[in-house]
């Protein structure tokens, strides 16, 4: 039997994996930095929580709607934001993060600092889903998202994103509608983050504004960078490692952020592309073993 503790960690990790993947669409594929990604995670969580507890919607409706709402908010905020570049975009997205967290914290409608409770695991076949079943459900969604990502990576949309990431000005000179494709990436990333938020809320059963603050945004970005920004599996590996780390480092609880910082510094110094980055040690070793023709990127 899988213990309750283990399954809790597994669910947390897979939610983080979806979340890291969603940021990877924006930052990795399309090259647009976001320092406020947790906002969309939070919008998803709060939407599904409110629809479930206040609106009487079942889980099966509240979570997809959470994704849609996060995507729509992503579009509304993304269109003005993505006209600015690089460092300005970092500051604008950070601002979005702070504003959204403040809205959750100060508007009584969102439960204030006390958050929202009484959100339950979904029901099926007339009973509440068990945690292992819930884990399987999220795992399936995760696999579908990865398959979708693979298809997108091979599409003209994926190619347009690569060109924007590589050189925005050259991309638009080659017929790439830069703003439109950036907004597309931002909306897709926000939608998936909202979906992760819905799953997260129904699993935690209780959400608070702090779960979706600046620290969380940075943690997601760390996962993406740590694992290998722009690669398909890197951010997921990053989510697994940085998701497990707090659990195995319980004995050194007080020094956890310190260890995180050291890890990231070491990463930047020795593997700037992340663990699975194109030119990092691990993929190089794998390539040498397997000897396969290089990817057509």
């Amino acid at each position: 039997m899988i213990s309750g503790y283990l399954i809790t960690i597994l669910i947390t990790i897979i939610v983080y994996a979806i979340l890291a993947h969603s940021l990877n669409v924006i930052t990795g594929h399309a090259g647009q930095i976001s320092l406020g990604h947790a906002a969309f995670f939070g919008i998803g969580a709060y939407t599904s929580a409110l629809l479930y507890t206040g609106g009487g919607f079942p889980f099966w409706a509240s979570v997809p709607l959470a994704a849609v709402v996060a995507g729509v908010v992503g579009a509304v905020l993304g269109i003005p934001c993505l006209r600015v570049r690089d460092d300005f975009l970092a500051i604008t997205t950070m601002g979005i993060g702070f504003v959204v967290e403040a809205v959750f914290l100060y508007l009584p409608f969102f439960g204030g600092a006390m958050g929202i409770g009484g959100i339950n695991l979904p029901k099926w076949f007339g009973r509440e889903m068990s945690k292992p079943e819930y884990f399987l459900l999220i795992l399936i969604v995760f696999v579908l998202l990865i398959l979708f990502d693979r298809r997108l990576g091979r599409s003209w949309i994926g190619l347009a994103w690569s060109s924007i990431r590589e050189d925005e000005q050259a991309a638009e000179a080659m017929g790439v509608d830069v703003v439109r494709f950036k907004v597309m990436a931002f909306v897709l990333g926000s939608t998936i983050a909202g979906l992760a938020g819905g799953f997260y809320a129904h699993f935690l059963t209780f959400i608070m504004p702090q779960n979706f603050g600046f620290g969380q945004s940075i943690l997601i970005l760390c996962m993406v960078v740590f694992g290998g920004i722009g690669t398909r599996w890197g951010p997921i590996l990053g989510a697994v490692i940085l998701g497990i780390l707090p659990e195995i480092s319980r004995p050194i609880m007080e020094y956890r952020t310190f260890v995180y910082g050291l890890l990231l510094l070491a990463m930047m110094r020795f593997q700037p592309g992340g663990l699975l980055g194109e030119e990092s040690t691990l993929p190089r070793m794998l390539r040498r073993i397997q000897f396969r023709p290089s990817e057509n990127r």
Binding site: L159, A160, S162, S163, E166, D167, A171, M174, N296, R297
Partner: peptide, 12 residues
């Protein structure tokens, strides 16, 4: 596009 190969550069 520096990290794309020549063929992909043209495909863009």
């Amino acid at each position: 596009f520096p990290n794309l190969n020549v063929e992909t550069n043209i495909l863009v």
